[in-house]
Simulated scan of single mutants.
Amino acid sequence: MASETVEYQIDATFIDDNDSWAIIEPLWWTVSIYDGEKKYEQDLSKYSKSQRLVFACHWYMSEVNNGGHDQFYYNSTGIVWRDAIECFDAIGATEISEIIKSSATRLGGSPSLDRNERNEVLEKIEPKFDDLDDRFYKLESQIDIEKLIKVFISKRKSDFVFNGKVLKP
């Protein structure tokens, strides 16, 4: 399958009319979580702090919903753990940020942003996350996280404006 160039015009109207996934779509195609912290930071430098936080929030939710905190930390997505905490605090979902903090504590308090190093710790201490997974799933069913994210975005629309072309693999 060939790559294609996609032009995005994310303005105030687009932000009002679309969900948070669509609003941060350019990040999905241009920010690598797979190539280490330096590349991750370099890719994110083109975007606002607000975009970065929502991106992390979505990665966290996607991974935990797919395979729990084990999967979140085992996969490359573990690189976003600090930003995910900050995002959930910023949107007012502090219970979820507390879950992430608890999961980080079970990995020594400050999990490495390097996937291989995180995996070594995971294999060495074999933390159990089932209770945290269950707490997250319960909270997610009680809280409209998308609504909280959209309120966060609507208060910072200029942080989410994006006009440009992105190479979509």
Rank of each mutant, 00 (worst) to 15 (best):
M1Q: 12
Y8H: 09
I10M: 08
T13M: 10
N18R: 09
N18W: 07
S20W: 03
W21H: 14
I23R: 07
I23T: 10
I24N: 05
W28I: 01
W28H: 02
W28S: 00
W29V: 04
Y34Q: 02
Y34P: 00
E41D: 10
Q42K: 12
D43T: 02
S45C: 11
S45K: 10
K46Q: 15
Y47M: 00
Y47D: 04
S48H: 04
S48D: 14
K49M: 12
S50W: 09
S50D: 14
Q51T: 03
F55E: 08
A56D: 05
C57F: 06
V64I: 06
V64C: 00
N65P: 03
N65A: 01
G68F: 04
D70R: 03
F72D: 10
F72N: 03
Y73D: 09
T77V: 10
R82N: 01
A84Y: 07
E86V: 05
E86C: 05
A90V: 00
I91P: 01
I96V: 14
E98H: 11
R106M: 11
S110E: 13
P111A: 13
L113P: 07
R115W: 08
N116H: 09
R118F: 08
L122C: 04
E123F: 09
K128G: 13
F129S: 12
F129Q: 02
L132P: 06
D134W: 11
D134H: 07
D134L: 09
Q142R: 10
D144W: 08
D144N: 15
D144C: 03
K147F: 06
K147Q: 14
K150H: 02
F152W: 13
I153M: 02
I153A: 03
K157S: 00
S158I: 14
F162H: 07
F162E: 06
N163D: 12
K165E: 10
K165Y: 04
V166C: 11
